[in-house]
């Protein structure tokens, strides 16, 4: 409990330092803000049944940045070539991640990954719109699932 209070307070203090752009004249207000934020976060998200893993977070960030780069470059190329480059289709995919935060993150993040946009979701069936059905979208979605599982400290 004490540990999580200290960790969160340090996190919010770091955030204040960034928001104040490193200036030191606002720390009186900053201290109040940090305490209020810590209190609110403990009320809204009581000490950690669902902890994010730091190593998983780095892994996820790396995965995310690399793939949003790939996705952006791919779709920019298609935009320049026009609709002849497109071969859209709807595909269905069975999700293996457990319900809750993991699935919410998966369905929403898929829209920023190469080739896919989440369209609909029933039970464990996710419907995706893919911009080119020749792309290995299912493998990409599975890789994203693995990265998310790592973020939440589970292994698939």
């Amino acid at each position: 409990m004490i540990g999580s209070i200290v960790r969160r307070a340090l996190l919010f203090a770091g955030l204040w330092w960034v928001l104040a752009e490193g200036r030191h004249d606002g720390w009186l207000l900053g201290g109040v803000a940090v305490m209020a934020a810590t209190w609110a976060s403990l009320r809204l998200w009581p000490a950690a049944p669902m902890t994010l893993r730091f190593a998983g977070l780095l892994g996820f960030l790396h995965f995310f940045i690399v793939n949003s780069l790939r996705g952006g470059i791919q779709v920019a190329g298609m935009a320049l070539r026009g609709r002849a480059a497109l071969r859209p289709a709807l595909i269905e995919l069975t999700i293996t991640l457990p319900a809750g935060g993991e699935r919410v993150l998966l369905v929403n993040t898929l829209g920023l990954m190469p080739g896919s946009v989440g369209v609909d979701f029933h039970g464990t069936t996710l419907r995706l719109h893919v911009i080119d059905e020749r792309l290995p979208v299912i493998a990409e979605a599975r890789a994203l699932e693995t990265a998310i599982a790592g973020l939440f400290g589970r292994s698939t």
Binding site: S68, G71, G72, V75, A76, L86, G111, G115, V117, I131
Partner: peptide, 23 residues
């Protein structure tokens, strides 16, 4: 360009969501 040239809302969404965020 994708928004202008792509044929439907789904493809336009691909263009805007990915390209603009990377930009």
């Amino acid at each position: 360009v994708g928004l202008l040239r792509f044929p439907d809302v789904y493809c336009r969404l691909h263009a805007l969501a990915k390209a603009d965020n990377l930009g």
